[in-house]
């Protein structure tokens, strides 16, 4: 599965990047391809390209704030979660996504 994600938190310094790492680790551990864009205090990093988004099976939005450039995400399957949920439960989130996508 190819997973893409966007993370963002209130200050944009710490949790944005912790969530990125948590999602990357959890996805890789379960054998998925993953790319995580951060929208932090330094702006957008590791920006998701059109190609990334086209190829993605799922987009995880782990954010506590209003995101920039959301027009890119239209028409893509997504799950919205608070940034803390990604830090805490990235593993079970990925499992849940696997199950959901398998059902269809």
């Amino acid at each position: 599965m190819k997973i893409v994600a966007v993370t963002a938190c209130a200050t944009g310094v710490a949790h944005t990047f912790m969530a990125k790492r948590a999602i990357e680790d959890a996805a890789k551990e379960r054998g998925h391809e993953v790319k995580v864009e951060t929208q932090g205090a330094t702006g957008i990093e590791d920006e998701l390209t059109r190609k990334d988004l086209r190829e993605a099976d799922i987009l995880i939005i782990a954010s506590d704030v209003k995101l920039a450039r959301t027009e890119r995400f239209e028409g893509i399957r997504k799950v919205n979660i608070p940034v803390a949920a990604a830090i805490k439960n990235a593993g079970s989130l990925i499992k849940k996504i696997e199950e959901k996508l398998k059902e269809e």
């Binding site: 310094v13 710490a14 944005t16 990047f17 912790m18």
Partner: peptide, 26 residues
Amino acid sequence: LLIVPKEKGEAIHLKLLSRLSYHLMD
């Protein structure tokens, strides 16, 4: 505890702190 300068133009500093946060999940 991270104490960050309020002034603008501190992108390099913020990058370092974000890197620290990223690695602390390891």
